[in-house]
Amino acid sequence: MRRILIWLAVLVPAAYFLLVFFAEGFPAHLGAGGLNVGITEFYVSRGIVIVIALAVGLGVINLFAHHLANIVRRRQDWPYSVILFISFLTVAVILLWQYRVEGERQALRDAATVALQRLEAVDEPVPAGAAVEILRPLAALLRYQDYQDEYHFEPRAFYVDYVRRPLEATVMALLGFYITYAAYRAFRLRSWEATCMMLSAAVVILGSDSFGGWLTGGRLTVWADFDNRVLNSGMQRGLALGIGVAVIAASLRIMLGLERGILESGQSEQ
């Protein structure tokens, strides 16, 4: 029973998305009305959002329960649980702050829109006090915009631009070092394969550079181009063909429940 349920959980969405893919290109004169998946897609999208929201809620409860227990019982590495709570609360506060900032901005915009509508409705001179009342929301919006221009601060943007992105960029920067080090090791002449690789790399690097072309009267550029466009592309296309067919076959096996890794996993214990 468990096996069938898992298989159906895999099959139904897979069949659905396959159908959506084909429905988009289905010829109109062959009865395309029968393949209109718009409504199903609408319900499925809503269903997915609901499931994700529930999953996130459950995940947060589970995470809190687990790490709270770690802290209370002083389990191994419990200080990391404290760090988790601090990080979680920091990000939550930043996002709630952002929510408040956006709410204030939207309220000002709404008030300004109402004020403009009232202004347009005025067709006779009004007392000064009433005019001020009408124009006040507009002035508030303008003041807010001036303030935003001068002291622009977005909590979420601050977190993304000044915390997360620099951290990611730092990690990404490590790649440059790793690539250089790996290239140095790969191009050492240890075997004839490594020699071939080094010669090929030298031709491509020098051929792609004006210095290499100048040095060999343009011949190296032609060789590098041949290497890239013929040898390399041919090999890549050949591999891509095989990989494409393999991916279709693997997807089909999963759809039909023939993939042991998914359906039979964990059953040997039960």
Partner: peptide, 29 residues
């Protein structure tokens, strides 16, 4: 399952993609 999914969808006036839109898949694409 594929045949069931490809059958005519239930038409409700208050839902998007129904009534006028349901006449042709080409309209969605």
């Amino acid at each position: 399952l594929l045949l069931m999914l490809t059958g005519p969808p239930p038409v409700r006036a208050d839902e998007p993609g129904t009534a006028q839109n349901a006449t042709s898949a080409a309209a969605t694409s």
